[in-house]
Measured scan of single mutants.
Amino acid sequence: MEVRTIKVFTTVDNINLHTQVVDMSMTYGQQFGPTYLDGADVTKIKPHNSHEGKTFYVLPNDDTLRVEAFEYYHTTDPSFLGRYMSALNHTKKWKYPQVNGLTSIKWADNNCYLATALLTLQQIELKFNPPALQDAYYRARAGEAANFCALILAYCNKTVGELGDVRETMSYLFQHANLDSCKRVLNVVCKTCGQQQTTLKGVEAVMYMGTLSYEQFKKGVQIPCTCGKQATKYLVQQESPFVMMSAPPAQYELKHGTFTCASEYTGNYQCGHYKHITSKETLYCIDGALLTKSSEYKGPITDVFYKENSYTTTIK
């Protein structure tokens, strides 16, 4: 009895394709271990004539594949690729409408935090270190965002349907971005203890939790000093293409032309909904596939993004 075979390709990165001759009487799992086709788990399936010449994702289970996976995804987590594939199996079914010149995501599976993050990423200057993220990001900007969303979920250790947080998501993504040249110098002034300067680099240099107003941050924000008295913390120097200011959701007025974009969060910790506000020729609110415009805006804002380049204080 002759062994019926077909020729397929296996890959971990969709760049390096490895030619395989597979036995049609055995499952993919018996031949390769966990195997995925377009995100779908085909591990328990036997090869079919229609699979001839198709590319299958496999887990990096030998040295060659491990090197290829690390170079593309910059992670050695053995569960990463499987999590990416199972997320992709959902995100490829989502709709990605162009809204006001940006790629958004039609609401499904509690994905409003991903839509808000995706919209924000198209408006701030950011370059990702893992080629996987950078490639998928370019495709997302062009309207094909399924891979990018699935990668975000995998890097953030999230599953489809789980509630997510924009600030946490951005923080994970910033860790995989090139923020080497970003720098922030802060000064804390206390009447009792004097003053202390701190220099922050990388992710810490672009994120701040405690106030939404970048102007206020430049002037000074009140913080408790270690001595128990009130101290003032203010920005001395900022070198970065953008800054992200966050605070627990509270009524906040966004003035046209003073910011790049913002995240609105309605609801409580267990259950809520994100919308995205962007400042173009007027203010726009993007909620999944829905767009509304207004000249002014007041609502429960939790993150505001500002364009920056270089700032030095005039406070002496």
Rank of each mutant, 00 (worst) to 15 (best):
I6H: 07
V8H: 05
V8G: 05
V12T: 07
V12F: 06
D13A: 06
N14W: 08
I15A: 07
L17Y: 09
M26A: 15
Y28S: 06
Y28P: 06
G29M: 11
G29K: 08
G33H: 05
L37Y: 13
A40P: 07
D41A: 14
K46S: 12
K46P: 12
K46M: 15
P47Y: 04
H48C: 12
N49W: 08
S50P: 08
H51A: 07
E52G: 12
E52M: 11
E52D: 13
G53C: 11
T55E: 07
F56C: 06
F56M: 11
F56D: 05
V58G: 05
L59S: 12
L59H: 15
L65A: 10
R66I: 11
E68R: 07
A69G: 06
Y72F: 09
Y72H: 13
Y73W: 03
Y73D: 05
T76F: 13
D77A: 07
F80D: 03
S86E: 15
L88N: 05
K92R: 14
K93E: 10
W94H: 03
Y96Q: 02
Y96A: 04
Q98F: 08
V99R: 10
N100I: 06
N100F: 06
L102E: 06
S104L: 07
S104R: 03
I105P: 01
I105Q: 04
K106C: 07
K106I: 09
W107H: 02
A108H: 05
N111S: 03
N111Y: 03
Y113G: 00
L114N: 04
T116Q: 06
L118T: 05
L119K: 02
T120V: 13
L121R: 05
K127I: 09
K127P: 12
F128Q: 04
P131Q: 05
Y137N: 03
Y138G: 14
A140C: 13
G143N: 04
A146W: 08
N147W: 07
F148M: 13
C149R: 02
C149S: 06
N157F: 06
N157L: 03
K158L: 03
T159G: 10
T159E: 14
V160C: 08
G161E: 04
E162W: 03
E162H: 04
E162D: 13
D165G: 07
D165E: 15
E168M: 11
T169G: 02
T169R: 02
Y172S: 13
Y172F: 10
L173W: 04
Q175L: 08
Q175T: 08
H176L: 14
N178V: 05
L179M: 07
D180E: 11
D180F: 07
C182N: 02
K183Y: 14
R184M: 01
R184T: 05
V185A: 02
V189F: 08
V189D: 14
C190P: 02
C193F: 01
C193V: 02
C193G: 02
Q195H: 11
Q196A: 11
Q196L: 10
T199L: 07
L200Y: 12
L200W: 05
K201V: 12
V203G: 06
A205N: 00
V206R: 02
M207W: 06
Y208L: 06
T211S: 10
L212T: 07
Y214K: 02
Y214F: 11
E215M: 06
Q216E: 12
K219N: 12
G220Y: 00
Q222M: 12
I223Q: 09
P224I: 14
P224T: 15
C225K: 01
C225W: 00
C227D: 01
G228V: 01
G228F: 00
K229N: 15
T232R: 09
T232L: 13
T232G: 00
V236C: 08
V236Q: 07
Q237D: 07
Q237G: 06
S240N: 01
P241R: 06
F242E: 01
F242Q: 01
V243S: 01
V243Q: 02
S246I: 00
A247G: 08
A250K: 11
A250S: 12
Q251E: 15
Q251V: 11
Y252R: 01
L254Y: 00
K255E: 14
T258N: 10
T260E: 10
T260R: 05
C261S: 02
A262Q: 01
E264V: 11
E264D: 06
E264G: 07
Y265M: 00
T266A: 08
G267L: 07
G267I: 07
N268P: 13
C271V: 08
G272S: 00
G272I: 00
H273T: 02
Y274L: 01
H276T: 05
H276S: 05
T278L: 09
T278V: 13
T278N: 06
T282K: 14
T282I: 09
L283E: 01
L283W: 02
L283C: 09
Y284D: 09
G288Q: 00
T292K: 11
T292F: 13
S294Y: 14
S295D: 15
S295E: 14
E296H: 15
E296A: 15
Y297D: 00
G299M: 03
T302D: 00
T302L: 00
V304A: 00
S310P: 07
Y311L: 10
T312D: 08
T314C: 08
I315D: 15
I315Q: 15
I315W: 15
K316T: 07
K316D: 15
